[in-house]
Simulated assay, not measured.
Amino acid sequence: MQDEPGPTELTKAVADFLREDIAPLVSGHNAFKLRVAINMLDLVTRQLTLEAASDAAEERRVQGLLAMQGSLFELNRALADKIANGELDLRTPGLAEHLWQTTMDKLAVDQPTYAAYRRELERSKLQR
C-alpha cells in the first residue's frame, strides 16, 4: 500500500491545477489541447474512483446470468456469444437490467454530464 496522496488525488490535483491556474493563461489551439488533457485527467480520476466497484458488480451480475465463474473479460465474451447465438435475449430474466446498469456505470465514468444519463439518474432516484 502506498502513502497518500493516491492516484485519484494526484490526477484530480493536476486537473484542478491545469483548469484553475493554467487554462486562464492559454488561448487558441493550445487552450483546446489543454481542455482535452484536463478532460482526460478527469476521466482517469473517475475511472480510479468508480471502476473497481462497477466492475465487481458487473462481474457478479454476469456470473448470475451465466451460472459460471471467470474473469470479467471471459464472462463478457461468453455473454456476448450467448446473445449472438440466441441462447439469451431481452426476455432472459435479468439481462435487460444488467445491460442497462452496465451502460449507466460506463456513462458515469465516460460521460457523466451527458443529458440522457443525467435524466435517467433523476428518473431512477424518483422511482426509489
Rank of each mutant, 00 (worst) to 15 (best):
D3R: 07
D3K: 05
E4I: 06
E4F: 12
G6W: 04
G6P: 07
T8G: 05
T8M: 07
K12S: 14
K12N: 12
K12F: 06
K12L: 14
A13V: 05
A13T: 09
A15I: 04
D16E: 15
D16T: 15
D16R: 15
F17D: 11
L18A: 00
R19I: 02
E20L: 14
E20R: 15
E20V: 13
E20Q: 15
D21W: 14
D21C: 14
P24L: 13
P24T: 14
L25V: 04
L25S: 13
V26Q: 12
G28E: 07
H29F: 15
N30Y: 11
F32D: 14
K33H: 15
L34T: 12
R35G: 12
R35T: 15
A37S: 11
I38T: 14
I38V: 15
N39Y: 02
N39F: 10
M40Y: 13
M40C: 06
L41K: 01
L41W: 06
V44E: 07
T45E: 09
R46E: 05
R46D: 05
Q47Y: 03
Q47S: 09
L48K: 00
T49A: 04
T49L: 01
T49Q: 09
T49F: 00
L50H: 00
A52N: 03
A53N: 08
A53K: 04
A53F: 00
S54T: 13
D55S: 02
D55R: 05
A57T: 03
A57S: 08
E59R: 14
R60I: 00
R61W: 02
R61T: 08
R61V: 08
R61E: 10
V62M: 07
Q63I: 11
L65S: 03
L65F: 07
L65C: 04
L66H: 03
L66S: 03
L66Q: 08
M68L: 07
G70A: 12
L72R: 12
L72G: 06
L72Q: 05
F73M: 13
F73R: 14
E74C: 00
E74A: 15
E74G: 00
E74L: 04
N76P: 04
N76L: 06
R77W: 06
R77C: 04
A78M: 14
A78G: 01
A78K: 13
A78R: 12
L79C: 12
L79Y: 11
L79A: 09
D81N: 06
K82S: 14
I83C: 09
G86D: 06
E87C: 00
E87L: 01
L88C: 03
D89L: 04
L90E: 08
L90K: 11
R91C: 02
P93V: 01
L95W: 10
E97L: 08
E97Y: 00
E97F: 01
Q101W: 01
T102Y: 14
T103K: 04
T103M: 08
M104L: 10
D105Q: 00
K106L: 13
K106T: 11
A108K: 11
A108T: 06
D110T: 09
Q111A: 15
P112H: 03
P112F: 02
T113E: 14
Y114D: 12
Y114G: 00
A115K: 08
A115L: 13
A115D: 11
A116V: 15
R118T: 13
R118H: 11
E120F: 06
E120C: 01
E120G: 02
E120Y: 11
E120P: 09
L121W: 04
E122F: 07
R123P: 01
S124P: 04
K125L: 09
L126N: 03
L126D: 05
Q127T: 10
Q127R: 15
R128P: 03
